[in-house]
Design a protein around this nucleic acid. Structure first.
Length: 433
RNA sequence: GCGGGUGUAGCUCAGAUGGUAGAGCAGAGGAUUGUGACUCCUCGUGUCGCGGGUUCGAUUCCCGUCACUCGCCCCA
């Protein structure tokens, strides 16, 4: 069998790249306007980083990471490395490693690039996928939570996402969450035998997840369960106030959201505010963006206690939501060689035009003029210059406009030709012939 | 890890209740000498995913296998 790409790892072909560029440019523009600066951590980190941040009971760590031994194991210096399954851990590690808290109170970073998770691929889910993410560190108050959702709304709207809605929840701090989880477990424990196999496991590992189960009988049970949200709202550490302030802030900025007490995120490090941006047009992988607060992670990595919040956005999923077509542009000029005697002069001309930044196409096939003309048209060229013995002798030629404009006679001088091409609006009748 | 679907020309697909296959698009050449688009003419290619089985004969039936795809789990 012929060689092919690894399962779940897709080529982004040239026709699609324009759309990627557009999303990346928009991210830089919108996030940049909010004060975020790009950071580029490595794709490879020590495995322990993810085990400690994402959480070793999560699916990601338990069965989805691309992990292998570093080659230094050959020298007895064994180290397990992992291709990053998400972006936050690396950013926080870099922040701590470079002791950036000393430089100022607040930091805002964005990153973009590939992430790796060994899952069964399906629509909107790949083993190598791409995320754009933001992390805001050093801001404890609800203001940054609100600002981040507002920024996301702006970004996603500008990116052309239809059917957009936010889901919001709070997981509280370790104290009130523990109280809520304890109540939850106490509620489910008597019914343990009635739960599905998955939920019996979840009850021990992550009781919150039982609430999110899709099995009918479990859902019925879950409806009567005490919500963690109610514990959080009663929290003595201010978790409830924080959440209420976020809601009020979102209302004030007219960022539409729906509260979802069952919203759980897959990573262990989240605290307080968690959210997802979803689209009804995505099928079963409905989330385009997920994120939340992680107030304890920096400290756990050995940094100063630093509250933080962030999100990650799936680029492939975003692209699936864009229905418009980015039309490819063609060369400004195609040079047709009508007779071989003119070829070397044509190449000199093209070389000069390209050196001045003109996108210039020269046919090397030696085929008929008709054939070269066809190719120029299909390539989307605006102008065509036919060069043969006649033109060489006369020192001038006709610039033919393929897009409905007027053709022009030009001297075979690089600057002159470029000036004519650049001055005329493609497709529009020339105002000054 | 568990289910479902699909695998026929570069692409999108049709097809024979078993006798080695087609249509559109794309591509190439041409319609008087060196000028695109619209139109017209001409032309090609396929180990019918792979390996077995049944059969005189299979791409069509059976079994296996691989790949892709959708869904579950979970997530961006």
């Amino acid at each position: 069998m012929a060689l092919q790409a690894v399962k779940g790892m897709n080529d982004v072909l040239p026709d699609e790249v324009a759309r990627w560029h557009r999303v990346e440019a928009l991210a830089r523009e919108v996030f940049g306007a909010h004060g975020y600066r790009e950071i580029r951590p490595p794709l490879l980190e020590v495995t322990e980083l993810f085990e400690r941040s994402v959480g070793d009971t999560t699916d990601i760590v338990q069965k989805e990471m691309y992990t292998f031994e570093n080659r230094s194991a050959e020298r007895g210096d064994a180290k397990r490395l992992t291709l990053r399954p998400e972006g936050t851990a690396g950013v926080v590690r870099a922040y701590v490693e470079h002791k950036m808290w000393g430089q100022s109170d607040e930091h805002r970073f964005y990153y973009l690039g590939p992430m790796f998770r060994h899952e069964r691929p399906q629509k909107g889910r790949f083993r190598q996928f791409h995320q754009v993410g933001c992390e805001a560190l050093g801001m404890p108050g609800p203001g940054i939570d609100v600002e981040m959702l507002s920024m996301l709304q702006q970004f996603l709207t500008a990116a052309g996402v239809g059917g957009l809605y936010f889901q919001l929840n709070t997981l509280g701090c370790p104290t009130c969450r523990a109280a809520g989880l304890a109540a939850l477990k106490a509620y489910f424990e008597p019914h343990r035998a009635a739960l599905c196999a998955d939920c019996q496991r979840r009850l021990d590992q992550n009781a919150l997840r039982v609430l999110d189960c899709k099995v009918e009988a479990d859902q019925a049970l879950a409806r009567g369960a005490p919500t963690v949200l109610s514990s959080v709202l009663a929290c003595t550490q201010g978790c409830g106030d924080h959440y209420r302030a976020v809601r009020a802030g979102l209302d004030a900025l007219k960022v539409p959201f729906q509260e979802n007490p069952l919203l759980v995120r897959g990573l262990d490090y989240y605290t307080r505010t968690v959210f997802e941006a979803c689209s009804s047009e995505l099928g079963s992988q409905s989330a385009v963006t997920g994120g939340g607060r992680y107030d304890r992670l920096v400290e756990e990595f050995g940094g100063q206690p630093t509250p933080a919040i962030g999100f990650a956005l799936g680029v492939e999923r975003l692209l699936m939501l864009q229905k418009d077509v980015v039309s490819a542009r063609g060369p400004e000029l195609s040079v047709v060689v009508a007779e071989e005697s003119a070829r070397s002069s044509a190449m000199v001309l093209v070389q000069g035009l390209r050196a001045r930044g003109t996108w210039c196409d020269l046919d090397h096939s030696g085929k008929s003029v008709k054939s070269q003309m066809r190719r120029a048209d299909k390539a989307g060229s605006t102008w065509v210059l036919v060069l043969g013995g006649l033109e060489m002798q006369a020192g001038k030629a006709t610039l033919k406009n393929l897009r409905g404009g007027a053709s022009k006679d030009v001297a075979l001088e690089i600057d002159h030709i470029q000036a004519v091409i650049r001055s005329a609006t493609p497709g529009a009748p020339s105002a000054n012939p």
